[in-house]
């Protein structure tokens, strides 16, 4: 789907207003993760790597079911595993999903000094435009979820791009084509934007 079809709401470091603002209404979506039904199967990790055509990388055993300690420049979706003992001695095994949350007020976008390197579409999806990025890595510190990462190979930061092409029809990102327990879905944003 061509990018031009999506209405942009915000542009990083852009001096003027957003072109075409208010022209087109998009259905707003958000990432909905139900940690109570996530089973930590990691199908979403695989889907993300494959959809984005990321290289495989060696990992090492680290006394956990978790694939790697944190997301990385080429691993944008990570299930983290936490064992937690309640006061009564019973156990919880919590699985949390680390990935770009497509924030309503994206810290990455706010921090970014390069015009047009990060945009937010009217439907809520936050996207990265590699060609405009100057590699300053401000977005890395701007993100509260530690998602943008400095790649091993070049100066620019990398953050997920593919949600744009997959959320248009609310069909969801590759990782939310979750046929398991539907723990992670792209849903219509219910709360009105202020």
């Amino acid at each position: 789907m061509p990018t031009g079809m999506l209405q942009i709401r915000a542009i990083s470091a852009h001096p003027d207003g957003v072109p075409g603002r208010g022209v087109q209404r998009e259905e707003e979506v958000c990432k909905y993760i139900d940690v109570t039904t996530c089973i930590g199967c990691k199908a979403c990790e695989v889907a993300c790597v494959e959809w984005n055509d990321m290289p495989f990388q060696p990992t090492t055993f680290d006394n956990t079911y978790q694939t790697m300690p944190a997301t990385s420049w080429n691993y944008w979706n990570l299930i983290t595993f936490h064992e937690h003992q309640r006061d009564d001695g019973t156990l919880m095994w919590l699985m949390r999903k680390d990935q770009c949350m497509h924030c309503e007020d994206p810290g990455c976008l706010r921090a970014c000094p390069a015009d047009g390197a990060i945009v937010q579409y009217a439907n809520g999806i936050v996207d990265f435009q590699q060609e405009n990025c100057i590699g300053c890595q401000y977005c890395v510190s701007g993100c509260p979820f530690d998602i943008p990462k400095r790649p091993a190979v070049c100066g620019s930061a990398r953050r997920p791009t593919c949600a744009r092409s997959r959320t248009r029809a609310r069909s969801s990102c590759a990782s939310t084509r979750d046929f398991r327990t539907r723990a992670c879905t792209i849903r219509r944003r219910l709360a009105a934007r202020t």
């Binding site: 990691k42 495989f56 990992t59 090492t60 055993f61 694939t67």
Partner: peptide
């Protein structure tokens, strides 16, 4: 398969 090996690399 490299992807599966990436997810859980070694026996434990």
């Amino acid at each position: 398969n490299p992807m599966n090996v990436q997810l859980v690399p070694e026996p434990f």
